[in-house]
C-alpha cells in the first residue's frame, strides 16, 4: 500500500497540501467510535453505590470490615476496564476462616 501511496503522491498537484496530510475525518470517526463505546459502557455512580452496598452485605457475613475506608472505582487501562475495590478488614469472624461456609 505504501508504494501505491507514493506513486499516487507523484500525481498529486503540488498546490494541494491537503493531499499530504492525513484526512482528519477518518481520524474523527476512529476517535468517535472509541469515545462512544466508552460512553455506552460507562459505570454510573449509582451502580457503584449499589455494588458497594451489596458487597458489604456479603462480606459482613464472614468478616468485620471498616466501612468508612472502602474504596471502589472503575479504572481504565487502555481498552480494558477494571473494578478496583479496596476493603480494609478488621478481623475475620470466628469459624469463617477454615470452612468458609458457616454463617
Amino acid at each position: 500500500m505504501n508504494i501505491i501511496k507514493k506513486i499516487l503522491e507523484l500525481f498529486s498537484t503540488p498546490d494541494d497540501p491537503k493531499e499530504k496530510l492525513e484526512a482528519s475525518a477518518k481520524k474523527a470517526k476512529e476517535r468517535l467510535q472509541f469515545i462512544i463505546i466508552d460512553d455506552r459502557t460507562g459505570v454510573s455512580p449509582e451502580l457503584l453505590e449499589i455494588l458497594r452496598n451489596e458487597m458489604i452485605k456479603v462480606l459482613k457475613k464472614y468478616m468485620d470490615i471498616d466501612e468508612s475506608r472502602i474504596e471502589i472505582d472503575i479504572e481504565n487501562s487502555g481498552k480494558t476496564k477494571a473494578l478496583a475495590v479496596n476493603i480494609p478488614v478488621i478481623q475475620v469472624k470466628r469459624g469463617s476462616s477454615i470452612t468458609g461456609s458457616e454463617v
Binding site: 482528519s24 475525518a25 474523527a28
Partner: peptide, 17 residues
C-alpha cells in the same frame, strides 16, 4: 467541500456511529 477533501465526517459515518 470539506467532506470531499476528507476533512469532515460524512453523513453515512455519522449514521453508522
Amino acid at each position: 467541500d470539506m467532506v470531499r477533501g476528507g476533512d469532515m465526517l460524512d453523513v453515512p459515518d455519522i449514521i453508522e456511529i
